[in-house]
Nucleic acid binder design. Structure first.
Lengths: 357, 357
DNA sequence: TATTTTTTGATGTACGTAAATCAAAAAGTG
DNA sequence: CACTTTTTGATTTACGTACATCAAAAAATA
């Protein structure tokens, strides 16, 4: 069986109380004694029984997640994943409160952060906006000793503990790389649809995309970026107009959350004429984009798994709250690439709750 | 605070003992009483404190992993991931024993399974070989009441609980799809290097690859498959000869573990002439294939994450051992696609051990 | 050496649940 | 009704650790 504190006490030739003092860094132990205990720990290969630790400590982890109110599929998914994790985590003494704020609203976000801070939670995760009041708010939290991670969208240099999200520059590069190869040397220009260049993820994706395209297929010019504000109508209109205007367009990269509008524009475009000629790469696997991929209208979808991001954020917050180190390799959020050949099976119930009865 | 068994007893108006009987499905409770208790559980939203449960039960999960002795990077990685998980899982009352058997040896595998079975572990994971003695062995284990999952390579219809691995047919299709698009309509034939068609994963990948190629670029013929037995020398020789013989070859798909040999052949080929003309897609991200991808020699790498597979197998075994249901969506092993644009950062220490103080 | 300070031991309670025992009550049987 | 069987209650111990208290021993200081 696994060694216990009693075994350590026995092999070290000290009392339980002393072992406890060493294990929990309490004062009043001579260096020699401490070493004896540590030797015994090493020799026996002792590791604490976390079940017992948690039980004895009665520790709870009240975490707060601050996310923009879902106006698009991705944010809706994110919220639902957070709620899901919340119910699943109850078993592990972790409570998660979900705070929703108006999207793209710096003041609202900062105000919410202030309120949250006064609750003194054990950790906070938030979808950041890249603005200095937000940076200040994060610093504020950290000053109050609250572990902080950013989720999905980062704000560099704010002193937070971690960013749980994909590398958007790499995502853009990947998209550009795929696009370049998909075009296969054909002549023509490439269109980019974004939400807004004011959002960091979008800006980074564009940057990466341009990098790769310049490298792989420098002969295909990138047209001026369309900013659809992640709004279906606006996105549809923009794409439609652009496709009409630039007859030589052979590629389209949708790097934001404007897929629904873009798809409608593509449907119109397909009935028009020159069908299969357009290579399309989009972000985020949603029911809409998925259907378009399956139908062959979209060629590839880059995806970030919201569930992974949420769970990673929780792990990191917990580790920080316990003063433990984080396994970096395990917390990297990968960029999923879906073609219609490796599309995961559709789940009616994406999240099935287990009853631990 | 969270409700406890005491709270249930109080609200249901029964004793602790009765609550315990209901919770643990013990006999001797009238249906009416049982319902009262269940109502109270529902009303209070009670969930068991797993920390306390594990502590009280003193339950341990002795699992066994049976894998082929690592003769290639992937299997080495797999073993190391298992060892890694083993140390990390000690904290959660899970012990994992790693049993290594000679590769591709049905008799050795079956013999090992028999020995393992007599140990009566709480669960077994194994890299299966698609042969009927193996099927029988699995049935045997199940008959002994031992939960079973296959890892990496499946053997259908053996009555095991789960397969923790990627969909190899989909992987092949994805490779074919990428290859088809990368070729971009150019004329030329495509070469496939496999380990052995007797291994199920390889056969399935080829099948999927052929499917996609037939659909997307039917004008590019697939040359007779090279079987390199996952041996570097043999693979190198085969690829070298084939590239010399089929001058019109513009694509190469390495679907097994013969990357090292293939890469050497490609190096030779590149110095020869017609450099960038060859599109290459390979499986498994290893130091070698990674370097080749970074150097532009390989265009894409499909990868299965051994760590994910191992952890998934453990989760499933644990759930089965506890008679709990599995969250299917969470256990799907995804097919990673790497271009040199989304290559994860290289980790010197791929697996960092956390010291739990 | 006497005194103070530091270190160590001994012991008990708590955490939430499992599991067992024995007694008591209720239900069912003839 | 007396009796048996089933159901329920009351109580205790255990799991491995945390944490607190008080006494005892050892070391450091005067």
């Amino acid at each position: 069986m696994r060694p216990t504190v009693h075994d350590i006490a026995a092999t070290a030739g000290v009392s339980l109380a002393t072992v406890d003092r060493v294990l929990n860094g309490r004062p009043g132990v001579r260096t020699v004694t401490r070493q004896k205990v540590e030797e015994a720990i090493g020799a026996l290969g002792f590791t604490r029984d976390m079940a017992a630790v948690n039980l004895a400590k009665g520790r709870v982890y009240p975490f707060v997640f601050i996310v923009p109110q879902g106006n698009n599929s991705f944010m809706t998914k994110l919220s639902s994943e957070i709620r899901d994790a919340a119910t699943r985590m109850r078993v592990e003494r972790t409570s998660i409160r979900l705070v929703e704020v108006p999207p793209f609203d710096v003041d609202a976000l900062v105000a919410a952060m202030k309120r949250v801070r006064d609750d003194k939670p054990a950790g906070v995760a938030l979808v950041a906006i890249d603005a200095s009041p937000v940076r200040a708010g994060i610093a504020d939290m950290k000053a109050a000793g609250i572990p902080m991670v950013t989720l999905v969208s980062d704000v560099p240099g704010a002193g937070h503990d971690h960013y749980a999200g994909i590398d958007n520059l790499a995502a853009g590069r990947t998209a550009g790389s795929l696009m370049g190869r998909f075009l296969g040397g054909r002549e023509g220009s490439v269109l980019v649809l974004a939400g807004s260049m004011l959002v960091r993820d979008h800006a980074e994706r564009l940057q990466g995309f341009a990098q790769s395209m310049a490298r792989i297929s420098p002969t295909n010019p990138i047209l001026p970026v369309l900013e659809g504000q992640d709004d279906p109508e606006r996105s549809e209109k923009l794409v439609r107009e652009a496709l009409g205007k630039f007859q030589d367009c052979i590629g389209l990269y949708s790097l934001g959350a404007g897929n629904r509008g873009m798809i409608r524009a593509l449907e119109h475009h397909a009935t028009e004429k020159r069908a299969g000629a357009l290579r399309v790469i989009a972000h985020e696997l949603t029911p809409h984009s998925r259907a378009a991929l399956a139908a062959g209208m979209i060629d590839a979808i880059l995806n970030q798994d919201a569930g992974h991001e949420v769970r990673s954020a929780i792990r990191v917050l917990k580790a920080k709250a316990d003063g433990q180190s984080v396994i970096t390799a395990q917390e990297r959020i990968r960029i999923d690439i879906f073609l219609n050949d490796n599309l995961p099976p559709e789940m009616e119930e994406e999240n099935i709750h287990v009853s631990w009865s």
